Amino acid sequence: MGGDSPEREVSLASGAAVAEAFREGGYEASPVDVTFTGRFPARPIWDVLNSELLEADVWFLCLHGGFGENGGLQALLEEKGVPYTGSGPLASMLAMDKWMSKKLFMSEGIPVPDGMLVGPGEDGRILEEIGLPCVVKPRSQGSTVGLSVVRCEGEIKKGMEFAGAYGDVLAERFITGRDLTVAILGEEALPAVEVHPKHEVYDYTCKYTPGMSEYTVPAELPEETADALKEHALKAFKVLGCRDFGRVDFRMDTEGGTYCLEVNTLPGMTSTSLVPKAARAAGISFPELVERIARMAVERR
């Protein structure tokens, strides 16, 4: 847990919650705050990878964003033969790359918002090919870090600079409507959750500030729509090659059409995060959820 990405604080909260859940279940758990760059007063990953922790039954990854979620750490753990939770290196990399994952979703017939990669000075392309309103965001970040909803031409440059601070920039058509998410556990899609953020989008503030979002669990959807959403979530999860657990985010427009935004391979895992909320709706307690995820990793050993 921890790491060096903009989602560090969320990661620490996830790690603490998962450790407590293991202890509630009668297991020993050792939270380890790691750094990949030395920017934070945490244990260097190279030290951890050459320590007694290699003998642990399983590493439960609670890193969000950056090297901990983009496949880098997963590749190192594969090389060491360490059993770890979540998707492997390639699936993690594809899920973090919003442009590549969009292409793969389209190949499976999963609806996605129109979008394109844009560079500096390409404001006109956004207006011509995407139109307004649109979303401008980094190609490879999580938790809506660097994301802007652009409603007028004068905001495009500012949005591109904001997203560009994190790398390549992706522009997408903004889908007016509802925020929905489907958690995946193994081969099962859990009940959909609807998010009611105080802001126009479910941004970083709404995700992690108490009182800034409300939730309907399970989401109030016609049975046919709920089933289709689960089907698309499983397809998106599988086309990227994901495993164990994850979360697939959607927007639903005012006419009931759903659009897949992304797959999160290491979603938030506090007791109030979206995946645990969906699990509770399916009758799965937080300690049971954590144990089931860990067992999947152990069984691959």
Rank of each mutant, 00 (worst) to 15 (best):
M1Y: 00
P44Y: 08
V135K: 13
A91D: 10
M269W: 00
S140P: 09
V149K: 03
G81R: 08
E223C: 11
E52A: 12
P111I: 04
M252T: 08
A282W: 01
G257K: 13
F237M: 07
G142W: 00
L289A: 02
P6Q: 12
L49M: 14
E288V: 07
E79C: 11
A192I: 01
L229Y: 05
L170Q: 03
E291R: 15
R125S: 12
E69W: 06
V112K: 08
E299I: 04
L180G: 05
T85R: 02
S92I: 02
V275C: 14
V18K: 00
V290A: 12
E299L: 08
L132D: 14
M212I: 04
K238P: 01
L289W: 00
A183M: 08
V169C: 10
L94M: 14
G72Y: 11
D179L: 08
L147F: 11
G283F: 07
H199I: 10
G164Y: 04
P41R: 07
L147W: 06
G115H: 10
W59N: 05
P6G: 10
V112T: 15
P83H: 01
M296K: 03
G38R: 01
E223N: 11
A294K: 11
K207H: 11
L49R: 02
E299H: 06
S14Y: 03
D97T: 11
E128F: 06
E200A: 15
I284R: 05
E108S: 13
T265R: 02
R151K: 15
G167M: 14
E224M: 12
L234R: 03
M96Y: 11
S273T: 10
E224N: 12
L289I: 04
G2V: 03
H199N: 14
Y215S: 09
V169R: 06
M269E: 04
P41V: 06
R292L: 02
G86Y: 03
F67C: 01
